[in-house]
Nucleic acid binder design. Structure first.
Lengths: 232, 232
DNA sequence: TTTTTCAAAAATATCTACATTTTTAGGTAC
DNA sequence: GTACCTAAAAATGTAGATATTTTTGAAAAA
């Protein structure tokens, strides 16, 4: 049987669609999410719609105030800084564990995903290229993290990745569409792999921390320029 | 105005009540959560009830399978080990940051909450004593963690604490009701504070890691003895 | 006899339509 | 401008309709 284990219900469809709409900016930070228009857009009743919203609340992408409905969570430089601080420390810790505990097959999968990432070229349209690079970049970092061997740590890592997603999108365009920035990332990745394979866990930890905090400056500038930081 | 900001709706009441029922063992690991009986017990319709369940799913206390309803999440030695492994590493990392970044008021609040904890005595009933010690013990560790200064890291910490809660309950009775175990914990806490105040972050980190992994052995034994680990 | 198959019935989960409650907006008097 | 009342809009909740899964029991096969 190849059918999906579960998740074939309207709630999940609405959840996925709304999540994408929020991270892609169809709904912007601070926007009111009116039940009437959500019902129409996602073709679903209020009950299931509330359930989908409720999930996004627990992922911090939506905020809820009792009797006053739902809003897209605001964005701010403060939150950006905190998310990336937490994420960098977490990822650095996981990397240290991976270097200490990862076996040969871990090394192999890191190298394989790095190779796959390096082969993303301009053959596709710009937008496709962006999506492909993003997916493979995520896969590369996941491969590294999986060396830690702890499902719960990987889960925590994913919740932080989700929360960073809207900020990451701002950085992504800035990086992928700049030949210089892209080459700089390539070099960082090469260096990272070298240190990982050398099994120097302290150095790997520090390097990953740096790698993760790098984007903060760029993202701050974009937020300031576009005035995405909501004034509530 | 001192009224609650929000959360005065049926969904939240059912959520809180069911969460307590699960962590207190009214519903046991693996139990089917029948919509009909939940509706009756919490006096609520299926829509809101689903929403409450959905929140518990995102906290990993309940599992959902599409079209087949909800169950209390199972417990296992494997999960225990992983949760405590992840939690210990996270808490150790946060402690290291707290020692590096915490200011004088942080030191003061750590000492204050340690004092409050040390004054829990047998004047109350055994069950009250358990609850009081648990609350103050949690407050003590929270005071330490808050020194890290990152709301997101504290949030991650809380999600792990929630996931550990059912396992912690097993350890709690074992510890609070044993004079020896309680005295050992007191000694660990004294030592911990000493190291925190000495600002030796590496030592503080290691000590916190140890402090967090200690309970695993005891809890494993209790699970094995009571056969709480579901055979799925 | 025991096991397997299968269809109907029962139980359960999911969703919609509508009723109720609360908040927001608009207008009027002070 | 502020306070207050009323009408409209919106959120929340219930009851019941629909769809899916599980159980039951009888017939067929081993």
């Amino acid at each position: 049987m190849v059918t999906n284990e579960d998740k074939n219900n309207l709630v999940n469809l609405a959840y996925v669609a709304l999540k994408r709409d929020i991270t892609e900016g169809v709904y912007r930070p601070g926007d009111k999410l009116l039940m009437r228009s959500l019902k129409e857009r996602y073709e679903i009743g209020s009950g299931p719609m509330r359930e989908a919203l409720s999930r996004l609340v627990s992922e911090r992408l939506v905020t809820a105030i009792s009797q006053r409905g739902f809003r897209v969570a605001s964005m701010s430089i403060d939150e950006l800084t905190d998310i990336y601080f937490a994420r960098a420390h977490l990822e650095a810790m996981i990397t240290e564990l991976a270097v200490k505990l990862g076996d040969e097959s871990w090394e192999a999968s890191v190298i394989a995903s790095a190779h796959t990432l390096s082969r993303v070229t301009q053959v596709h349209s710009a937008e496709d290229m962006l999506g492909l690079w993003d997916a493979r970049h995520k896969a590369f970092h996941l491969a590294i993290a999986q060396g830690c061997g702890s499902p719960k740590l990987l889960e925590l890592r994913l919740t932080m990745l989700d929360q960073a997603e809207r900020y990451r999108q701002l950085w992504l365009r800035h990086t992928v569409f700049s030949a210089d920035a892209l080459e700089a990332k390539r070099e960082e990745h090469r260096h990272l792999i070298e240190v990982l394979l050398s099994r120097d866990h302290a150095k790997a930890r520090d390097l990953m921390f740096q790698h993760m905090t790098g984007p903060v400056t760029i993202i701050s500038e974009v937020i300031a320029a576009r005035d995405l930081a909501g004034d509530e």
